[in-house]
Design a protein around this nucleic acid. Structure first.
Lengths: 197, 197
DNA sequence: CCACTATGAGACAGGTTGACTCACAATGCC
DNA sequence: GGCATTGTGAGTCAACCTGTCTCATAGTGG
Protein backbone atom coordinates (compact mmCIF):
# COMPACT_ATOMS: atom_id res chain seq x y z
CA UNK A 1 0.00 0.00 0.00
CA UNK A 2 1.34 3.41 -1.00
CA UNK A 3 1.46 4.85 2.51
CA UNK A 4 2.56 8.25 1.17
CA UNK A 5 4.07 10.60 3.72
CA UNK A 6 0.85 11.80 5.25
CA UNK A 7 0.22 15.05 7.05
CA UNK A 8 -0.71 14.18 10.66
CA UNK A 9 -3.58 16.64 10.41
CA UNK A 10 -4.96 14.65 7.51
CA UNK A 11 -4.78 11.29 9.23
CA UNK A 12 -6.20 12.73 12.43
CA UNK A 13 -9.29 14.19 10.84
CA UNK A 14 -9.69 11.23 8.52
CA UNK A 15 -9.69 8.90 11.47
CA UNK A 16 -12.23 11.02 13.31
CA UNK A 17 -14.46 11.09 10.25
CA UNK A 18 -14.29 7.35 9.62
CA UNK A 19 -15.06 6.64 13.25
CA UNK A 20 -18.01 9.01 13.16
CA UNK A 21 -19.22 7.49 9.91
CA UNK A 22 -19.21 3.91 11.20
CA UNK A 23 -20.93 5.03 14.38
CA UNK A 24 -23.65 6.68 12.34
CA UNK A 25 -23.93 3.59 10.17
CA UNK A 26 -24.29 1.40 13.23
CA UNK A 27 -26.97 3.59 14.76
CA UNK A 28 -29.05 4.54 11.80
CA UNK A 29 -28.08 2.48 8.78
CA UNK A 30 -26.54 3.62 5.54
CA UNK A 31 -28.96 6.46 5.05
CA UNK A 32 -27.76 8.10 8.24
CA UNK A 33 -24.28 8.51 6.79
CA UNK A 34 -24.13 11.94 5.11
CA UNK A 35 -21.40 14.54 4.81
CA UNK A 36 -23.19 16.83 7.18
CA UNK A 37 -23.87 14.22 9.86
CA UNK A 38 -20.31 12.93 9.71
CA UNK A 39 -18.90 16.45 10.00
CA UNK A 40 -21.06 17.22 13.03
CA UNK A 41 -20.29 13.93 14.70
CA UNK A 42 -16.56 14.10 14.04
CA UNK A 43 -16.30 17.72 15.14
CA UNK A 44 -14.95 18.64 11.75
CA UNK A 45 -15.80 21.21 9.13
CA UNK A 46 -18.30 20.14 6.53
CA UNK A 47 -15.90 21.18 3.79
CA UNK A 48 -13.30 18.81 5.17
CA UNK A 49 -15.56 15.82 4.69
CA UNK A 50 -16.18 16.88 1.09
CA UNK A 51 -12.45 17.27 0.58
CA UNK A 52 -11.79 13.66 1.62
CA UNK A 53 -14.78 12.08 -0.07
CA UNK A 54 -16.20 14.11 -2.90
CA UNK A 55 -19.24 11.86 -3.31
CA UNK A 56 -21.63 10.27 -0.90
CA UNK A 57 -21.01 6.75 -2.08
CA UNK A 58 -17.31 6.98 -1.35
CA UNK A 59 -18.01 8.20 2.13
CA UNK A 60 -20.46 5.41 2.78
CA UNK A 61 -18.11 2.79 1.42
CA UNK A 62 -15.42 4.07 3.76
CA UNK A 63 -17.81 3.66 6.67
CA UNK A 64 -18.71 0.16 5.54
CA UNK A 65 -15.14 -0.94 5.02
CA UNK A 66 -14.04 0.37 8.38
CA UNK A 67 -16.94 -1.41 10.01
CA UNK A 68 -15.99 -4.82 8.62
CA UNK A 69 -12.40 -5.69 9.57
CA UNK A 70 -11.17 -9.11 8.34
CA UNK A 71 -11.92 -12.21 10.37
CA UNK A 72 -8.97 -13.30 12.47
CA UNK A 73 -7.48 -16.71 11.66
CA UNK A 74 -8.02 -19.66 13.96
CA UNK A 75 -5.40 -20.14 16.68
CA UNK A 76 -2.38 -22.24 15.77
CA UNK A 77 -3.45 -25.37 17.63
CA UNK A 78 -6.91 -25.43 16.08
CA UNK A 79 -5.43 -25.05 12.61
CA UNK A 80 -2.83 -27.72 13.28
CA UNK A 81 -5.48 -30.17 14.45
CA UNK A 82 -7.62 -29.41 11.42
CA UNK A 83 -6.22 -32.30 9.42
CA UNK A 84 -7.47 -34.71 12.04
CA UNK A 85 -10.63 -32.88 13.10
CA UNK A 86 -11.76 -30.12 10.73
CA UNK A 87 -14.97 -29.41 12.60
CA UNK A 88 -13.28 -27.28 15.23
CA UNK A 89 -11.84 -24.91 12.68
CA UNK A 90 -15.15 -24.58 10.89
CA UNK A 91 -16.86 -23.82 14.16
CA UNK A 92 -14.19 -21.27 15.00
CA UNK A 93 -14.78 -19.17 11.92
CA UNK A 94 -18.53 -19.44 11.99
CA UNK A 95 -18.66 -18.48 15.65
CA UNK A 96 -16.60 -15.46 14.82
CA UNK A 97 -18.92 -14.63 11.99
CA UNK A 98 -21.87 -14.96 14.34
CA UNK A 99 -20.38 -12.60 16.85
CA UNK A 100 -19.96 -10.20 13.98
CA UNK A 101 -23.55 -10.59 12.92
CA UNK A 102 -24.75 -10.04 16.46
CA UNK A 103 -22.45 -7.08 16.87
CA UNK A 104 -24.33 -3.97 15.90
CA UNK A 105 -21.52 -2.50 13.83
CA UNK A 106 -20.61 -5.40 11.58
CA UNK A 107 -24.26 -6.40 11.53
CA UNK A 108 -25.09 -3.01 10.07
CA UNK A 109 -22.45 -3.51 7.40
CA UNK A 110 -23.80 -6.90 6.43
CA UNK A 111 -27.34 -5.59 6.40
CA UNK A 112 -26.32 -2.73 4.14
CA UNK A 113 -24.51 -5.09 1.81
CA UNK A 114 -27.47 -7.44 1.64
CA UNK A 115 -29.92 -4.64 1.12
CA UNK A 116 -28.10 -2.35 -1.23
CA UNK A 117 -25.70 -4.37 -3.30
CA UNK A 118 -27.84 -4.52 -6.41
CA UNK A 119 -28.21 -0.82 -6.93
CA UNK A 120 -24.65 0.20 -6.91
CA UNK A 121 -21.30 -0.68 -8.33
CA UNK A 122 -19.16 0.11 -5.33
CA UNK A 123 -21.52 -1.89 -3.16
CA UNK A 124 -21.18 -4.81 -5.55
CA UNK A 125 -17.45 -4.76 -5.02
CA UNK A 126 -17.87 -4.58 -1.28
CA UNK A 127 -20.29 -7.51 -1.38
CA UNK A 128 -17.69 -9.50 -3.27
CA UNK A 129 -15.01 -8.60 -0.75
CA UNK A 130 -17.15 -9.72 2.16
CA UNK A 131 -18.14 -12.88 0.35
CA UNK A 132 -14.59 -13.78 -0.59
CA UNK A 133 -13.40 -13.13 2.92
CA UNK A 134 -15.95 -15.50 4.39
CA UNK A 135 -15.54 -18.26 1.82
CA UNK A 136 -11.75 -18.13 1.86
CA UNK A 137 -11.56 -18.34 5.62
CA UNK A 138 -13.60 -21.54 5.48
CA UNK A 139 -11.75 -23.04 2.53
CA UNK A 140 -8.79 -24.74 4.27
CA UNK A 141 -11.01 -26.46 6.81
CA UNK A 142 -13.45 -27.58 4.11
CA UNK A 143 -10.63 -28.98 2.02
CA UNK A 144 -9.31 -30.78 5.08
CA UNK A 145 -12.76 -32.17 5.82
CA UNK A 146 -13.05 -33.48 2.29
CA UNK A 147 -9.60 -35.05 2.46
CA UNK A 148 -10.48 -36.61 5.78
CA UNK A 149 -13.61 -38.14 4.31
CA UNK A 150 -16.02 -36.08 6.40
CA UNK A 151 -17.51 -34.36 3.39
CA UNK A 152 -18.31 -35.50 -0.13
CA UNK A 153 -15.48 -35.03 -2.59
CA UNK A 154 -17.49 -32.53 -4.63
CA UNK A 155 -18.23 -30.16 -1.75
CA UNK A 156 -16.50 -26.83 -2.21
CA UNK A 157 -15.98 -24.02 0.26
CA UNK A 158 -18.65 -22.12 -1.68
CA UNK A 159 -21.20 -24.87 -1.16
CA UNK A 160 -20.36 -25.27 2.47
CA UNK A 161 -20.54 -21.53 3.06
CA UNK A 162 -23.97 -21.51 1.48
CA UNK A 163 -25.30 -24.22 3.79
CA UNK A 164 -23.84 -22.71 6.94
CA UNK A 165 -23.63 -18.96 6.46
CA UNK A 166 -27.00 -18.93 4.71
CA UNK A 167 -28.94 -20.23 7.70
CA UNK A 168 -27.06 -17.93 10.06
CA UNK A 169 -27.84 -14.89 7.95
CA UNK A 170 -31.44 -16.05 7.74
CA UNK A 171 -31.71 -16.35 11.50
CA UNK A 172 -30.17 -13.00 12.10
CA UNK A 173 -31.75 -10.80 9.46
CA UNK A 174 -35.00 -12.51 8.55
CA UNK A 175 -35.98 -14.37 11.73
CA UNK A 176 -34.52 -11.58 13.85
CA UNK A 177 -32.88 -14.01 16.27
CA UNK A 178 -29.66 -13.59 18.16
CA UNK A 179 -27.07 -16.19 17.32
CA UNK A 180 -25.80 -18.27 20.22
CA UNK A 181 -22.98 -20.80 20.22
CA UNK A 182 -25.38 -23.70 20.12
CA UNK A 183 -26.88 -22.26 16.98
CA UNK A 184 -23.49 -22.42 15.28
CA UNK A 185 -22.97 -25.97 16.46
CA UNK A 186 -26.36 -27.01 15.18
CA UNK A 187 -25.80 -25.36 11.81
CA UNK A 188 -22.34 -26.88 11.34
CA UNK A 189 -23.54 -30.33 12.31
CA UNK A 190 -26.50 -30.08 9.99
CA UNK A 191 -24.19 -29.08 7.14
CA UNK A 192 -21.82 -31.94 7.89
CA UNK A 193 -24.75 -34.34 7.82
CA UNK A 194 -26.11 -32.84 4.63
CA UNK A 195 -22.84 -33.27 2.78
CA UNK A 196 -21.58 -36.44 4.42
CA UNK A 197 -20.22 -38.91 1.87
CA UNK B 1 -61.24 -5.64 5.56
CA UNK B 2 -63.23 -2.42 6.02
CA UNK B 3 -63.61 -1.66 2.35
CA UNK B 4 -65.37 1.67 3.15
CA UNK B 5 -67.24 3.20 0.29
CA UNK B 6 -64.29 4.74 -1.51
CA UNK B 7 -64.32 7.62 -3.92
CA UNK B 8 -63.21 6.28 -7.32
CA UNK B 9 -60.86 9.24 -7.61
CA UNK B 10 -59.15 8.16 -4.45
CA UNK B 11 -58.67 4.57 -5.47
CA UNK B 12 -57.53 5.60 -8.92
CA UNK B 13 -54.79 7.90 -7.75
CA UNK B 14 -53.86 5.59 -4.90
CA UNK B 15 -53.40 2.76 -7.33
CA UNK B 16 -51.30 4.91 -9.63
CA UNK B 17 -49.14 6.00 -6.72
CA UNK B 18 -48.61 2.51 -5.34
CA UNK B 19 -47.70 1.24 -8.79
CA UNK B 20 -45.26 4.10 -9.25
CA UNK B 21 -43.80 3.51 -5.79
CA UNK B 22 -43.13 -0.18 -6.35
CA UNK B 23 -41.61 0.58 -9.74
CA UNK B 24 -39.28 3.09 -8.14
CA UNK B 25 -38.45 0.61 -5.41
CA UNK B 26 -37.64 -2.03 -7.98
CA UNK B 27 -35.42 0.26 -9.98
CA UNK B 28 -33.58 2.16 -7.33
CA UNK B 29 -34.17 0.60 -3.95
CA UNK B 30 -35.96 2.06 -0.96
CA UNK B 31 -34.11 5.35 -1.14
CA UNK B 32 -35.57 6.04 -4.54
CA UNK B 33 -39.09 6.09 -3.12
CA UNK B 34 -39.91 9.68 -2.16
CA UNK B 35 -43.07 11.74 -2.30
CA UNK B 36 -41.72 13.80 -5.13
CA UNK B 37 -40.53 10.87 -7.22
CA UNK B 38 -43.77 9.00 -6.74
CA UNK B 39 -45.81 12.06 -7.69
CA UNK B 40 -43.82 12.59 -10.87
CA UNK B 41 -43.95 8.92 -11.81
CA UNK B 42 -47.64 8.53 -11.08
CA UNK B 43 -48.56 11.72 -12.89
CA UNK B 44 -50.09 13.05 -9.72
CA UNK B 45 -49.73 16.21 -7.70
CA UNK B 46 -47.09 16.20 -5.03
CA UNK B 47 -49.66 17.29 -2.46
CA UNK B 48 -51.78 14.26 -3.26
CA UNK B 49 -49.02 11.91 -2.26
CA UNK B 50 -48.65 13.76 1.03
CA UNK B 51 -52.38 13.54 1.57
CA UNK B 52 -52.34 9.76 1.29
CA UNK B 53 -49.13 9.13 3.19
CA UNK B 54 -48.16 11.91 5.51
CA UNK B 55 -44.76 10.42 6.30
CA UNK B 56 -42.09 8.86 4.17
CA UNK B 57 -42.02 5.58 6.02
CA UNK B 58 -45.69 4.94 5.39
CA UNK B 59 -45.21 5.56 1.71
CA UNK B 60 -42.27 3.18 1.56
CA UNK B 61 -44.09 0.50 3.47
CA UNK B 62 -46.96 0.75 1.01
CA UNK B 63 -44.50 0.21 -1.82
CA UNK B 64 -42.96 -2.76 -0.04
CA UNK B 65 -46.27 -4.40 0.78
CA UNK B 66 -47.56 -4.01 -2.73
CA UNK B 67 -44.33 -5.51 -4.06
CA UNK B 68 -44.65 -8.70 -2.04
CA UNK B 69 -47.97 -10.42 -2.74
CA UNK B 70 -48.53 -13.72 -0.86
CA UNK B 71 -47.17 -16.96 -2.25
CA UNK B 72 -49.81 -18.98 -4.04
CA UNK B 73 -50.62 -22.41 -2.59
CA UNK B 74 -49.50 -25.58 -4.29
CA UNK B 75 -51.92 -27.09 -6.81
CA UNK B 76 -54.47 -29.53 -5.47
CA UNK B 77 -52.76 -32.68 -6.70
CA UNK B 78 -49.41 -31.76 -5.22
CA UNK B 79 -51.01 -31.01 -1.85
CA UNK B 80 -53.01 -34.20 -1.95
CA UNK B 81 -49.92 -36.28 -2.66
CA UNK B 82 -48.05 -34.56 0.12
CA UNK B 83 -48.90 -37.19 2.67
CA UNK B 84 -47.15 -39.79 0.58
CA UNK B 85 -44.39 -37.61 -0.89
CA UNK B 86 -43.86 -34.26 0.86
CA UNK B 87 -40.79 -33.33 -1.15
CA UNK B 88 -42.81 -32.13 -4.11
CA UNK B 89 -44.74 -29.63 -2.04
CA UNK B 90 -41.59 -28.32 -0.41
CA UNK B 91 -40.00 -27.89 -3.80
CA UNK B 92 -43.10 -26.13 -5.07
CA UNK B 93 -42.97 -23.37 -2.46
CA UNK B 94 -39.25 -22.92 -2.55
CA UNK B 95 -39.26 -22.70 -6.33
CA UNK B 96 -41.86 -20.02 -6.07
CA UNK B 97 -39.79 -18.22 -3.51
CA UNK B 98 -36.79 -18.42 -5.80
CA UNK B 99 -38.68 -16.95 -8.68
CA UNK B 100 -39.61 -14.15 -6.34
CA UNK B 101 -36.03 -13.62 -5.29
CA UNK B 102 -34.90 -13.56 -8.88
CA UNK B 103 -37.70 -11.25 -9.82
CA UNK B 104 -36.51 -7.70 -9.52
CA UNK B 105 -39.58 -6.44 -7.71
CA UNK B 106 -39.93 -8.96 -4.92
CA UNK B 107 -36.15 -9.19 -4.75
CA UNK B 108 -36.02 -5.49 -4.00
CA UNK B 109 -38.56 -5.95 -1.23
CA UNK B 110 -36.59 -8.75 0.35
CA UNK B 111 -33.38 -6.80 0.06
CA UNK B 112 -34.95 -3.80 1.73
CA UNK B 113 -36.32 -5.96 4.51
CA UNK B 114 -32.97 -7.63 5.07
CA UNK B 115 -31.12 -4.36 4.99
CA UNK B 116 -33.38 -2.04 6.87
CA UNK B 117 -35.41 -4.05 9.33
CA UNK B 118 -33.36 -3.17 12.36
CA UNK B 119 -33.71 0.57 12.12
CA UNK B 120 -37.38 0.85 11.98
CA UNK B 121 -40.51 -0.36 13.62
CA UNK B 122 -42.71 -0.60 10.57
CA UNK B 123 -39.97 -2.51 8.79
CA UNK B 124 -39.77 -4.91 11.70
CA UNK B 125 -43.44 -5.68 11.28
CA UNK B 126 -42.99 -6.17 7.55
CA UNK B 127 -40.07 -8.49 8.18
CA UNK B 128 -42.26 -10.54 10.48
CA UNK B 129 -45.02 -10.67 7.88
CA UNK B 130 -42.67 -11.92 5.21
CA UNK B 131 -41.11 -14.42 7.57
CA UNK B 132 -44.44 -15.78 8.75
CA UNK B 133 -45.67 -16.05 5.21
CA UNK B 134 -42.69 -18.15 4.19
CA UNK B 135 -42.60 -20.38 7.24
CA UNK B 136 -46.34 -20.99 7.25
CA UNK B 137 -46.43 -21.96 3.62
CA UNK B 138 -43.81 -24.63 4.33
CA UNK B 139 -45.39 -25.85 7.54
CA UNK B 140 -47.94 -28.40 6.23
CA UNK B 141 -45.37 -30.11 4.04
CA UNK B 142 -42.82 -30.19 6.84
CA UNK B 143 -45.35 -31.68 9.23
CA UNK B 144 -46.24 -34.26 6.61
CA UNK B 145 -42.58 -35.09 6.09
CA UNK B 146 -42.11 -35.61 9.80
CA UNK B 147 -45.19 -37.82 10.01
CA UNK B 148 -43.97 -39.78 7.04
CA UNK B 149 -40.60 -40.36 8.71
CA UNK B 150 -38.63 -38.31 6.21
CA UNK B 151 -37.54 -35.79 8.81
CA UNK B 152 -36.62 -36.04 12.48
CA UNK B 153 -39.52 -35.66 14.84
CA UNK B 154 -38.08 -32.47 16.32
CA UNK B 155 -37.73 -30.62 13.02
CA UNK B 156 -40.09 -27.65 12.85
CA UNK B 157 -41.10 -25.53 9.90
CA UNK B 158 -38.88 -22.81 11.37
CA UNK B 159 -35.85 -25.08 11.35
CA UNK B 160 -36.53 -26.33 7.88
CA UNK B 161 -37.04 -22.82 6.57
CA UNK B 162 -33.71 -21.82 8.05
CA UNK B 163 -31.85 -24.63 6.29
CA UNK B 164 -33.51 -24.05 2.95
CA UNK B 165 -34.45 -20.41 2.67
CA UNK B 166 -31.18 -19.38 4.33
CA UNK B 167 -28.96 -20.85 1.61
CA UNK B 168 -31.22 -19.45 -1.10
CA UNK B 169 -31.07 -15.96 0.36
CA UNK B 170 -27.31 -16.34 0.70
CA UNK B 171 -26.93 -17.31 -2.93
CA UNK B 172 -29.08 -14.51 -4.14
CA UNK B 173 -27.98 -11.58 -2.01
CA UNK B 174 -24.49 -12.42 -0.86
CA UNK B 175 -23.12 -14.62 -3.61
CA UNK B 176 -25.04 -12.65 -6.21
CA UNK B 177 -26.13 -15.77 -8.08
CA UNK B 178 -29.34 -16.36 -9.95
CA UNK B 179 -31.40 -19.19 -8.57
CA UNK B 180 -32.19 -22.00 -10.99
CA UNK B 181 -34.47 -24.97 -10.45
CA UNK B 182 -31.55 -27.28 -9.83
CA UNK B 183 -30.42 -24.99 -7.05
CA UNK B 184 -33.76 -25.46 -5.30
CA UNK B 185 -33.55 -29.22 -5.75
CA UNK B 186 -30.04 -29.31 -4.34
CA UNK B 187 -30.98 -27.18 -1.36
CA UNK B 188 -34.09 -29.22 -0.54
CA UNK B 189 -32.23 -32.49 -0.84
CA UNK B 190 -29.42 -31.23 1.35
CA UNK B 191 -31.93 -30.16 3.98
CA UNK B 192 -33.69 -33.52 3.84
CA UNK B 193 -30.34 -35.25 4.32
CA UNK B 194 -29.36 -32.92 7.14
CA UNK B 195 -32.53 -33.59 9.09
CA UNK B 196 -33.13 -37.20 8.12
CA UNK B 197 -34.02 -39.37 11.14
C1' DC C 1 12.00 31.14 10.98
C1' DC C 2 9.38 30.43 6.73
C1' DA C 3 6.82 28.40 2.93
C1' DC C 4 3.26 25.13 2.65
C1' DT C 5 -1.08 23.06 3.25
C1' DA C 6 -5.08 21.05 5.74
C1' DT C 7 -8.60 22.96 8.18
C1' DG C 8 -12.98 25.63 10.04
C1' DA C 9 -16.08 29.09 9.19
C1' DG C 10 -18.93 31.13 6.36
C1' DA C 11 -21.26 32.63 1.95
C1' DC C 12 -23.84 31.10 -1.86
C1' DA C 13 -26.96 29.02 -5.54
C1' DG C 14 -29.79 25.21 -6.44
C1' DG C 15 -32.64 21.63 -5.05
C1' DT C 16 -35.75 19.09 -1.75
C1' DT C 17 -39.10 18.83 1.96
C1' DG C 18 -43.37 19.52 4.19
C1' DA C 19 -47.18 22.52 5.03
C1' DC C 20 -50.36 25.49 3.23
C1' DT C 21 -53.90 27.77 0.00
C1' DC C 22 -57.14 27.94 -3.82
C1' DA C 23 -59.58 27.09 -8.12
C1' DC C 24 -61.43 23.16 -10.36
C1' DA C 25 -63.58 19.12 -11.73
C1' DA C 26 -65.13 14.51 -10.63
C1' DT C 27 -68.43 12.30 -7.66
C1' DG C 28 -72.63 10.88 -5.03
C1' DC C 29 -77.13 12.14 -3.76
C1' DC C 30 -81.54 14.05 -4.41
C1' DG D 1 -80.27 17.05 -14.46
C1' DG D 2 -78.80 19.99 -10.57
C1' DC D 3 -76.17 20.64 -6.46
C1' DA D 4 -73.33 20.19 -2.37
C1' DT D 5 -69.35 17.51 -1.33
C1' DT D 6 -64.70 16.25 -1.78
C1' DG D 7 -60.34 14.68 -3.87
C1' DT D 8 -57.19 16.73 -6.80
C1' DG D 9 -53.37 19.71 -9.34
C1' DA D 10 -50.95 23.72 -9.29
C1' DG D 11 -48.75 26.89 -6.93
C1' DT D 12 -46.53 29.38 -2.90
C1' DC D 13 -43.58 29.49 0.98
C1' DA D 14 -40.11 28.85 4.69
C1' DA D 15 -36.87 25.69 6.32
C1' DC D 16 -33.43 22.66 5.41
C1' DC D 17 -29.82 20.09 2.82
C1' DT D 18 -26.27 19.81 -0.78
C1' DG D 19 -22.27 20.84 -3.17
C1' DT D 20 -18.90 24.45 -4.27
C1' DC D 21 -16.20 28.32 -3.28
C1' DT D 22 -13.40 31.70 -0.69
C1' DC D 23 -10.55 33.22 3.02
C1' DA D 24 -8.25 33.68 7.42
C1' DT D 25 -5.97 30.59 10.63
C1' DA D 26 -2.99 27.40 12.54
C1' DG D 27 -0.46 23.14 12.43
C1' DT D 28 3.47 21.12 9.81
C1' DG D 29 8.08 20.09 7.60
C1' DG D 30 12.21 21.93 6.25
Amino acid sequence: MPEERADPRQVRSREAMVTAATALLTEGGLEAVTHQAVAARAGVGRATVYRHWADLLGLRLAALEAGMPPLSPAPEDVRAASGAEPRAELVHYLRQLCERLDDAQAGAVLAAVLGGAQYDDGMQRLRLTVLTQIVDSLRPAVTAAVARGRLRADVTAETFAMTTVGPLVYQRFLAGARLGRDMVDAVVDAALRAWAP
